[in-house]
Design a protein around this nucleic acid. Sequence first.
RNA 1: GGCCCGUUCGUCUAGGGGUUAGGACAGCAGAUUUUCAAUCUGCCAGCAGGAGUUCGAUUCUCCUACGGGCUACCA
Length: 489
Amino acid sequence: MTNNKILNLKEKENGKKHSIRVRFAPSPTGYLHIGSARTAFFNWLFAKKSGGSLILRVEDTDIGRHMEETVSLIIDSLKWLGITWDEGPDIGGRFAPYRQSERTAIYSLNAEKLIDAKKAYRCFCGPEKLDAKRKKLSEENLYFKYDRECLHLSEDDIRQNIKNGLPFAVRLKVPDGKDIVFNDTVYGEIKVNSNILEDFIIIRSNGQPTYNFSAAVDDILMEITNVIRGEDHLSNTPKQILVYEALEKDIPVFTHLPMILGSDGSKLSKRHGSISIEAYRDEGFLPEAIDNYLALLGWAYDEKTTLFSIDELTDKFSIEAINKKPSKFDYEKLLWLNGHYLRSADESFIAGLLSERFKTKGVEANELNSKLPKIIPLIKERIKTINQAEETVLPFFFDISYPDEFKDFFAGRTDENIKIIENTVSSIAKIEEFTVKNIETCLRALAEELNISFKKYAEVIRAAVWGSKVSPPIFETIEVLGIKTTIDR
RNA sequence: GGCCCGUUCGUCUAGGGGUUAGGACAGCAGAUUUUCAAUCUGCCAGCAGGAGUUCGAUUCUCCUACGGGCUACCA
């Protein structure tokens, strides 16, 4: 433990000029949640825009030790979104370590400092005792606020308790009747009286800090100038300010971001669909689409623009323009955005993504390389996700099975349809150069010859060749399939 | 229960004391088309309710309703 990790009381940095430092501090409980991703993204945008630094800090004070996987999952998702950071658990930095589980001693030492300064005190009331008190009061419809029993313990009692090995938590002594005021960038002035707060626990009896303490201590230590986080922390902010004040440090600028809710207005959860960035990546969404969509949740540049590249976003984003209203997550709009970005994406890029998927399905690289470049232009305009693309392109690589409804389709008009198919087979067999143009001339001529509308004719051929009433443009499709496959089908 | 925050088309939002309240997604209709998309055109649709301030409130103030958050030895 180096000394600079223990905060010196009475040493406010007077007017020292800082460059902007923001942080994203996820709790590694699994994957990167949509809401957290937005928070991370806004932090990143703000850091970029202001030429500051983004710090990634893992808040794992209560998660146990087995979370390596989830940390790397979160890191992967962040990187995939294009978010980069200047300091973090994976790359280190001036204020390492960046995992709170590795900083336990820092919190204890600072808590001890507070105890010595009589700004915090040991509490020997165990959870059972507190629960009992809580329960008793709730039966009378009253709400329990810690009664400061242990604040009044004598020095001797405390020494005796410690000597007897009684476990204790550490509580912050909340000043009485004090207005805690801060100015939130998006919510404006927030004022709360300290009387509604109890002496909250800052160190648990297992020695681990609680969130409101560790977050504040680290934000001080890591010289965070702007705290940008979800609105769910707005109510926690006064407590953290109390920690700043107990430690005699200046508070940073707070910016709380409105929540992202599910379509029914309740907290975004699994029953609303996918909520992890990972899931969207797997579904075949593009990071540009997600970033663009996320940016539009609670923020707008002007009255018209909805499409923003990352560069435009870093240029135009402004934290002051964030609104207060919680927003509902709209999957449809995300889909539309993704379709837009897919349409403007590089064809070889899409081919690469599809190629990966088909390789795992056992399709040879050769076949992929020859067909995919022809296929992509056919489907590019018709897909909204890579999943969809994969789906629609399946008959190019695998045998098709005709759905039951087609049995009727062929049976109902047997003569005509069979005639069409037989004629088509023999006609295309004669095509010398199997190109789109020749196929088209050939088939159009045939339809005329058979005296049926091309619309009708195409319907039959499509069903026969593709096993579906919907397909990419038929001539191109036939070309890619090749003469043999077409005739076989 | 207490405290904090919010409420403009179904959704994301712009606006802001006098506007035909603007855009986007979705929906609907049409054009185009070998299907489906894409594209283009048009349509539908909104200031939560009530008081107050004002010549005039969607905009300012208050109240109510509704929604969200916090109120843990979770973060």
